[in-house]
Amino acid sequence: MSILNSLLRDVASLFFPARCPVCGEPLAQGERTVCTLCRATAPLTGFWNEAGNPMLDKCRDMLPVERASGFLYYVHGSGWRELIRGFKYRGAWRTARAMGEWYGRCLKESGLYDDVEVVVPLPLHPFKRCRRGYNQSEYIAEGIAAQLGAAVDRRSVRRRRNTASQALKSRRERARNVEDAFAVRYPGRLAGRHVLLVDDVFTTGNTMLSCAGEILRAAPGCRISVAALAVSRRELGGRE
Rank of each mutant, 00 (worst) to 15 (best):
P26C: 05
K108T: 08
R154T: 12
E66M: 14
L124W: 14
V178G: 07
N5A: 10
I3M: 04
R239W: 07
A183E: 12
V201T: 04
H194W: 05
R217P: 01
L236V: 03
V118N: 14
L112H: 15
T163E: 08
A151S: 15
R67L: 14
L122Y: 00
Y89H: 10
A51Q: 13
V65L: 15
G46A: 03
S137R: 02
T36Y: 02
I144T: 02
L27R: 07
L236D: 01
A141D: 11
N177L: 06
G133E: 06
A164Q: 11
A175V: 05
R19S: 12
D199L: 02
C38V: 12
R217Y: 04
N162W: 13
V184M: 05
E173R: 07
A68V: 04
R189G: 15
L7C: 12
F87K: 00
Y73M: 00
E173L: 02
T36I: 03
H194T: 07
R160E: 09
R154P: 01
M208T: 15
Q166E: 09
A12D: 06
M208V: 14
R67N: 08
M1C: 01
D153R: 09
Y103G: 12
I84D: 02
I224T: 01
S156F: 08
Y103T: 10
A151F: 07
G213Q: 03
G221R: 11
G111M: 01
E82R: 12
R171H: 10
R131L: 14
L56S: 15
S165L: 00
G213M: 09
M208S: 11
A219N: 07
A228Y: 13
A181H: 11
P121K: 04
N53L: 08
S165H: 00
L72T: 06
W48G: 06
M55T: 05
E173S: 05
D57F: 12
W80R: 04
V120R: 06
G91C: 02
V120Y: 12
R161F: 07
R171I: 08
S13H: 07
Q29Y: 11
G143H: 14
G238P: 02
R174F: 03
G149Y: 01
H194S: 13
L7S: 13
V178K: 06
Y134Q: 05
I224M: 03
Q136C: 13
V231F: 13
A68D: 02
G133T: 06
E235Q: 10
R129L: 07
K169S: 04
V201Q: 00
D115E: 06
E109W: 04
R19F: 02
R132E: 04
V198G: 09
E240G: 07
K88P: 04
P123F: 02
A92F: 13
R67E: 09
M55W: 12
E82S: 12
G221Q: 00
R39P: 00
G237W: 12
A230K: 01
L190D: 11
R233T: 09
S156C: 07
L14Y: 11
I3R: 06
T207C: 12
A146N: 06
G77Y: 03
R32I: 10
S78Q: 14
C106G: 08
S225M: 15
V201D: 02
L44W: 05
E109Y: 15
S78K: 05
N162T: 13
R234L: 13
M55C: 01
K169I: 15
P220N: 03
D199V: 08
R85C: 11
P121T: 09
W102T: 15
Q29P: 07
